[in-house]
Amino acid sequence: MNAIESFGIDKQYENHVALHPLDISIPEGSVFGLLGPNGAGKTTLLRIINQIISPDNGSVSFYGQNIRSSHSHQIGYLPEERGLYKKMKVGEQSMYLAQLKGLSRKESRKRLHWWFKKWELETWWDKKVEELSKGMAQKIQFIITVIHEPKLLIFDEPFSGLDPVNAALIRDEILRIKEEGATIVLSTHRMESVEELCSHIALLNHGEKILDGTVNEIRESHRNGNFRLSYRSNEPITLSLPEQVEISQNLRDFNKGICIAEIQSVKLNSSEIISVLAPQVDTIRFEEIIPSMNDIFIKSVKK
C-alpha cells in the first residue's frame, strides 16, 4: 500500500504556478527522498500533504483513505523553517507541542522524559529556548516531530545546522523509526544522505515531477556505459579495444605506479570488456561508474 498517493494535485498562486498536476506515490515503509532545486514546489507539496494548504485540484490519499484532518495526528512534520518560542522553557514547550499532537499530559511527560534521558538533555528541561544552541534546538524539534509515533514522518532538511556527530544521531534515529514500520519522507539537498538513506525518490523541478522511482532503478537507468580500469604501470599503456569501445582518458594516477583508464562503451557490458582488457594489463580494479544521485540531480535539472 502507499502511505501517500496524490492524484493530479496542483496549486497556483496569484503570480506563479507552484505545482503542476502531480501524481506521486510514497510506498509504505519506504524512505522517500523528495528532491529538487529551491523553488521546485517541494514545500508546497509537503504543505498539501500536511493539509496546511489545500490543492486547487486533485486529491491526496493517506494509507488508502482520502486524507482528512484527523490524519494529522498520524503525521509528523519537521519543516525546513522551524523555530520554538524563545522565552518559553524547553520542557514546558515540549509538553505543549506534544499535547497539540494529541498526546495526554501524562503520556507526553513520559515520552519526553524517555527522549530527554536518551539524549542526555535532562538538564535542559528548565532552561529557556533562547539559551539553547542551534543543534540543541534541532534535537528538541526532532523529538517533538516524532513524539507521537506517527505512521508517516516528513523531514525537511533534518540535518541542516548539525555537526557530524548530531547528524549521525538523527540519521540513526530515522533509520530506527523506519525499522519500526514508519514511512519516511526526506526532503534534502544533501545527496549523500539520499544515497545513504533513501529507497525511493522523486525529483521535482519548476513544479513538475521530472523523475521518480527506486534509487537503484534510477541509477541503473542513468547508466551511461562508463567504466574505470586501474592497473599497475608507471606509464599509461596503450590498450587495444573491441569495437564501439573508446577510451576517454588514460592517465597516470597520483599514486606512484598506478594508471587509470576511463572507458566508454554503449553496447558491451563489464564482463565483456574486462575479458578483453584483463590480459593486456596488471589489473587492480575494474568497475562500472554508475552516476551518483548528485550527477543525476544536476543532469536532470539542467535538461
Partner: peptide, 17 residues
Amino acid sequence: IEEKTSRIIEVIITSVK
C-alpha cells in the same frame, strides 16, 4: 508576530488548524 518570526508557526500548524 512572535510566532511568525520565530517560525514556530510552521511547527504548530502541522498539528492544529
